[in-house]
């Protein structure tokens, strides 16, 4: 036990120290800022005006912020389901002993390596284009009228377009996490199961899935974090000014800190800080819930 104590201290200290140096001061400053009215994000404390909960109250009373929260929730939930199922499916196929595994894996992950600016431009100006878009051509090729005529980018469908484009890129990332989780499961399980006459699907259901709990937790945590920070794609899908279909809390925060679009609008870094605090709380809550749902204790091998 004593030995463990020194080990805990020695092993944990560097990470905790790094964390404290980089994050603690900014986080506490952010929490404090959320109770003040502050024009510039780096303004000296003497310029802060205490406003109590006013920032939070204003946030909850602003339609646009509520829309942004709704958007992020939709991205998290629907996008999450879509990405996780595809990622798990691909990971399962990849690790089922197929050929060209490396090539498949590399290609599926590839969109992650390409700059989001290029990908977003490609989706917006090519795939979804109502004039010469890829989806339009596919629709025409297959004589699917609805697909050929579908207006992906109008105000009623832009969110769906954004979700598809974003998820397409994210599948590879989560697939890698799933795949490395599956790869770590010992082959003896499968060999034993095969001897017992279990089919591949059964093996997946009764061996792979239960043993993937931990990795699934990681995946959900990472997905939640990247959803909370959803920013770049939103900006790329609504250049210059934000859009009701694509605005997310971080974009809203950004507008309050640096001003919106080309017009000079009121700035309040305190509101930005309040958004940051709310997002952090959401992420921690999700993390806690995940912890409860995916208890690691029952995994033993």
């Amino acid at each position: 036990m004593k030995k463990n104590k020194t080990m805990i201290v020695v092993f944990l200290t560097p990470a905790v120290v790094m964390f404290s140096i980089i994050f603690l001061y900014p986080i506490f400053r952010t929490v404090a800022m959320s109770f003040f009215k502050i024009e510039g994000v780096t303004d000296a404390v003497s310029k802060w005006q205490f406003s109590g909960l006013a920032n939070y109250i204003k946030l909850f009373n602003t339609e646009l912020f509520r829309i942004s929260m709704w958007n992020i929730f939709r991205i998290w939930l629907f996008g999450g389901i879509l990405v996780m199922s595809l990622a798990l499916l691909f990971a399962a196929i990849l690790t089922s002993g197929i050929r060209f595994k490396n090539a498949f894996r590399a290609i599926i992950y590839m969109p992650n390596v390409v700059s989001a600016v290029a990908l977003a431009t490609m989706w917006l100006q090519y795939v979804f284009s109502p004039k010469f878009g890829l989806f339009k051509s596919i629709g025409e090729l297959l004589h699917w009228e609805w697909l050929a005529k579908f207006q992906w980018l109008d105000p009623s469908h832009l969110f769906m377009a954004l979700l598809i484009a974003y998820c397409f890129g994210m599948v590879g990332y989560h697939m890698l996490i799933f795949a490395s989780g599956i790869e770590r499961i010992g082959t003896d399980y499968y060999e034993a199961a095969t001897l017992d006459g279990a089919s591949r699907i059964q093996q997946f259901r009764y061996i792979t899935l239960p043993l993937l709990k931990g990795v699934t937790k990681t995946n959900i945590t990472m997905w939640s974090i990247s959803s909370a920070g959803f920013f770049l794609w939103s900006q790329l899908f609504s250049m210059v000014v934000s859009n009701t279909q694509t605005i997310t809390p971080v974009v809203y925060m950004y507008q309050n800190i640096f001003g919106a679009g080309n017009s000079m609008t009121e700035r309040n870094a305190g509101i930005g800080a309040a958004v940051g605090v709310l997002l952090s709380v959401c992420v921690v809550l999700i993390f806690m819930v995940c912890d409860k749902v995916f208890k690691d204790d029952d995994i033993e091998f």
């Binding site: 646009l64 000014v241 009701t244 919106a260 009121e266």
Partner: peptide, 13 residues
């Protein structure tokens, strides 16, 4: 038209 950042996206939509 864009004087109120909280309304701009709604006006545009």
């Amino acid at each position: 038209a864009e004087a109120n950042a909280d309304m701009t996206p709604i006006i545009i939509e």
